[in-house]
Design a protein around this nucleic acid. Structure first.
Lengths: 212, 212
DNA sequence: GAAAGAAGCACGACCGGTCGTATAGTTTTC
DNA sequence: GAAAACTATACGACCGGTCGTGCTTCTTTC
């Protein structure tokens, strides 16, 4: 493991570039991402970026993968400490909207922003975004199914339906994070899921009390 | 009608330009909107646009206003034919997600796309978008309040909460309209509201039956 | 073990193209 | 003929991308 070796230096540049690209793309979009601005942010030359990725599109795809990693680290992983079932579901939802309310990324949500941006832009980038979103949806459904299997949600729960609603509540919070009142959005997004879970969960002690 | 043919000609160009701008901005975003592409679409010269709007930003603001008008004409107005209360609420929601499912605009939803695009772009354009969204939210709350006042929803209904959830369900459908399965999104968005209304509405005959 | 070559990395200069914008002149319409 | 509507042209800035070059590190060879 060479610390200052030739390869290690390149790796450092690559990861730093992708981290910065995620931040910039969250603000300006993946299509609107400027390689010149990215290079300036990193303090490197623009042409040097092409030594690591053969085109802007290749960098965009790598940035999406990096954003998925960050999502797993910052949102999914902490929520997995909660016990399997509705509590884990709620923990994941809260971790997500908390991420927006805390304004970790200056531009809101990387995925929401870019997915809307590429709604009418067919191509490899949109496909990669769609893949990431499909995996996220599948993960949500898996968590819902676990809650059903554990008997914490009604057996006839519409898994896909509930997963859709959870994602919708969170995505809306991402939009409010800068355009309108983010605190109200956080409350509504959180309360919205609590209402749904209370109607489906036979054991009320599993969920926090109160309207908030 | 046309007192001066010159002015009428200019008006025609203006409205045609704004209509085209809404379509193009829905696909490429308001920031990503290209005046050259807009001029080509209209069959006019790019510089001629500056005779009607002093800058791109002025045109962007005008396009937002035009999009609001279209929203009123295409979605709000038809829904107002439904009787006041939960049926009007449901009609508005269905008109909206139907608009996405029918893919009237090639890029999905003008407002959802541009609002996410301007999440991290402060300035007059974002303020205008925020104003439009605030008015839309207020209108949704007004319709919910009407349903409560008519006794069609429980008296202790959280109006702002329900309005938030309705918008979230619709916005999520807008994203799915091109990225993933739009039909499933339509069903989930519609069913999501039905579930919530059934829990709040003491008179089940006001709502359609069945799971779909 | 040292010299020599290969490979990874980063740089500055530059290309063609597109962006929003300004100016001057032309066509259309009364 | 006057005024509104429109076009042609040009501009400076920025875009993604290429090329040639030099520096550092790893690998091969003697």
């Amino acid at each position: 493991m060479t610390v200052d070796g030739r390869v290690a230096r390149g790796d450092r540049t690559r990861t730093a570039a992708l981290d910065a690209a995620v931040v910039l793309a969250t603000e300006a979009g993946l299509h609107g991402l400027s390689l010149a601005q990215l290079a300036d942010t990193l303090g490197v030359s623009k042409s040097g970026l092409f030594a690591h990725w053969r085109s802007k599109e290749a960098l965009q795809l790598a940035a999406i993968d990096r954003a998925v990693e960050q999502w797993r680290e910052r949102i999914v992983a902490p929520a997995l400490h909660a016990p399997r079932g509705v509590r884990r579901l709620l923990a994941l939802h809260e971790a997500r909207i908390d991420f927006y309310a805390a304004r970790v990324l200056p531009g809101g949500c990387f995925f929401a922003n870019t997915q809307f941006e590429y709604n009418a832009r067919p191509g490899p980038v949109r496909e990669r975004l769609a893949d990431a979103f499909a995996r996220w949806t599948a993960f949500l459904e898996e968590l819902v199914q676990q809650a059903v299997d554990a008997g914490e949600l009604a057996a006839d729960t519409d898994v896909a339906q509930l997963a859709y609603e959870i994602d919708a509540l969170g995505m809306s919070a991402a939009m409010h994070s800068r355009l309108l009142d983010p605190d109200a959005a956080y409350r509504h997004a959180r309360h919205g899921l609590l209402i749904r879970l209370r109607a489906l969960c036979p054991d009320p002690t599993l969920l926090p009390e109160g309207p908030s």
